[in-house]
Amino acid sequence: MDIKHYKITVTSEECGYRRSTEDAADLTAYLLSPMPQAPGRLRPAIVICPGGGYGFVSPREDQPVAMEFLAAGYQVFVLHYHVAPEIFPLALMELARSVALIKAHSREWCIDSSQIIVCGFSAGGHLAGCMGTMWNREFLYKPLGLTAEGIQPGGMILCYPVITSGEYGHQRSFSQLLGAGADQDPAMRRLVSLEHQAGPHVPRTFLWHTWTDQTVPVENSLLFASALRKAGVSLEMHIYPEGCHGLSLATEEVSDHTGDCLVPHCQGWINLAREWVAHGPNTGERTE
């Protein structure tokens, strides 16, 4: 296995506002070597966006999750995107440029380019959801010198995602994402409220949440599921009866001294997600 770091740069000119810093985002790649008995085998790729309310990038949803997907035989990438005081659409452009990089190297890295899946947690789930709903918008790909097809993800895994800026929204995430003033702009709030952006162009989606999440209410996932249903998008959704926000893997590895994030009943989501990936982009088609 190789571990590589790539600098993902988006300039002020490209993102449309004067950034507070021109520092690059970091994309960490965990790349498995080809197996001697199957040197031409193509692997799915998972691009992980940890959560943190657009105020930080959570380590609990970083390497522990990457190792689980790596163990399943996937090529795995973790994006440390920019957060506040940087604002929309910088992080989304960093994710778009990351997907484009992975597609450009798909042959070299033995990746099935139709199986590049964005995976996000909480606000990172919102970021991944933006990628899945906005990959075909000119404001996203054109300033980067890319094409819509060049940044199109093959699927989404959304874990207790921030979705709506409305009644059930996690308002701090949207304040951090949009910045002072813009967070009160109805047009901008609607743009980043993903239940309004769903359509038939959205890739197949795996979605999970807990019924008792008090930070990002389950209505976020229910609203998005309803929108995807109306758009005819393939969806697998799991709602667990108990569990706080930010469970990550729900294991002892990611839990602190309180034990709040140790919820054995929720630990199965990662296996369900891996089964969903293996099922392939088309109903009834299984990828090996």
Rank of each mutant, 00 (worst) to 15 (best):
I3A: 11
I3L: 14
I3T: 13
H5L: 14
H5Y: 15
Y6P: 11
Y6R: 13
K7Q: 12
T9Y: 12
T11E: 08
S12E: 12
S20A: 13
A29S: 02
Y30Q: 08
L31E: 02
L32W: 03
M35G: 14
Q37Y: 05
A38V: 07
R41G: 00
V47E: 02
I48D: 10
I48W: 08
P50N: 11
G52N: 05
G55V: 03
G55Y: 04
F56V: 05
R60C: 11
M67T: 10
Y74C: 08
Q75E: 09
V76N: 02
V83N: 08
P85E: 02
P85H: 10
F88C: 05
E94W: 03
A96H: 02
A96V: 01
I102M: 01
I102F: 00
I102Y: 01
E108A: 03
C110F: 13
C110G: 11
I111G: 05
D112Y: 02
C119E: 05
G120S: 03
G120H: 08
F121S: 05
S122D: 09
A123K: 00
G124N: 06
G124F: 07
G125S: 10
G129M: 01
C130S: 06
C130K: 00
N136K: 13
E138P: 03
E138G: 04
P143M: 05
L144H: 03
L144K: 01
L146G: 02
Q152C: 12
G154A: 03
G155P: 08
G155T: 08
G155R: 07
Y160A: 01
P161M: 04
I163R: 06
H170E: 06
R172L: 15
S173G: 03
Q176E: 10
L177E: 01
L178C: 00
G179I: 00
G179D: 12
A182M: 00
D183E: 11
D183R: 10
Q184C: 14
D185Y: 04
D185C: 13
A187C: 08
L191Y: 08
Q197G: 14
V202S: 09
V202C: 09
R204Y: 09
T205Q: 07
F206C: 05
L207K: 00
W208R: 06
W208Q: 04
W211F: 15
D213W: 03
P217Q: 14
E219S: 13
S221Q: 13
F224W: 11
F224Q: 11
S226P: 14
A231V: 08
L235I: 11
M237R: 14
I239G: 03
Y240N: 00
E242W: 07
G243F: 05
C244N: 13
C244V: 15
G246F: 07
A250W: 04
E252C: 10
D256E: 07
T258I: 05
G259L: 03
D260E: 11
C261N: 15
C261F: 15
C261D: 06
L262S: 15
L262V: 14
Q267H: 09
W269S: 01
W269T: 02
W269C: 02
N271I: 10
E275H: 13
A278T: 10
H279F: 15
H279G: 15
T283F: 14
T283Q: 13
G284V: 06
